[in-house]
Computed example of a mutant assay.
Amino acid sequence: MLTDELCPHCAMTTTTKRAKKTKLGYATFFCPHCQRTFNERTGTPFNYLEFPTDIVLLAIVWRLRYKLSLRDIAEMFLARGFPFTHEAIRDWEARFAPLMADHLRARRRGQAGKSWHVDGTYLKVHGK
């Protein structure tokens, strides 16, 4: 079955989806041009992670959004069956938080207008 999946090695689009999945459940593909097999994460910053991408991103979002400690997050995921250490979360945050910020910044729409809504803070600019 031909797919539109781009081969990360030779950039050909004539790849075929294989029935076999990775250990984490990601689809695998075969490129007949360069004779290589790859998966959905090949060529991305998430390629060599031992855990699913969505779990890693969720741990980073919880860390940044809720200001939880590294050990608290590791303990919360351990209760859900994902045994990783607080050091792993620290490494993921250092690697992927800037990528997430760049992605969000690129998708931000609009610009700051004349009035801003700030919680309980008043600013005086040039006497106004």
Rank of each mutant, 00 (worst) to 15 (best):
R109Y: 01
K124P: 01
R107N: 10
K20H: 11
T14F: 12
W92G: 04
M1Q: 05
F29A: 02
T44Y: 07
K124M: 12
W92D: 04
I55M: 01
E5F: 10
R36W: 10
T3I: 09
V61E: 02
A94V: 03
T44F: 07
R65E: 07
E40N: 05
D91A: 10
S69V: 07
A94T: 05
C31K: 14
M12C: 12
L104G: 09
T44D: 03
S115Q: 14
H126M: 07
C34T: 08
F96G: 03
H86L: 00
M100V: 14
A19G: 08
E93S: 12
E5G: 00
A27H: 15
T13G: 13
M100S: 05
I60D: 03
F46L: 10
A112P: 00
D102P: 00
D119V: 11
E50T: 10
L99V: 12
A97Y: 15
M1W: 04
Y26N: 09
H9K: 04
R65W: 03
Y48E: 12
S69Y: 04
E75K: 03
L2C: 00
A112Y: 11
E75A: 08
A19Y: 14
P52Q: 14
L2I: 08
M12W: 09
W62H: 11
F38P: 02
E93V: 13
I60Y: 08
E87R: 13
H103T: 11
F46G: 01
F84L: 02
T44I: 09
I73D: 06
L49W: 03
G120F: 06
T53W: 07
A106I: 00
P83E: 06
H86S: 03
Y48Q: 12
P8L: 02
E50M: 05
K20G: 02
A106D: 08
L24Y: 02
V118L: 15
V125S: 05
A74N: 01
P52V: 01
T37A: 09
T28K: 15
E75Y: 05
R71E: 13
E87S: 14
D91R: 12
F84I: 05
K114F: 05
A59T: 01
T13S: 12
P45V: 04
R95L: 11
E40P: 01
F51C: 06
R65P: 01
K23M: 07
V118N: 06
L68H: 07
T16S: 13
L78A: 06
P98C: 12
R80A: 00
L24E: 00
T3G: 06
K114H: 09
R18W: 06
L49M: 11
G81A: 04
T85D: 13
E75Q: 09
L58I: 01
L123C: 10
D102C: 07
Y48D: 15
P52E: 08
R80H: 03
W92M: 04
R105V: 09
L70R: 08
R18C: 08
T15N: 15
L49H: 04
E87P: 03
T16C: 11
H33L: 05
R63A: 13
F51S: 01
V56R: 04
L24F: 04
H103A: 15
E5C: 10
R80S: 02
I73N: 02
R71N: 09
L24V: 02
T53E: 14
L58W: 05
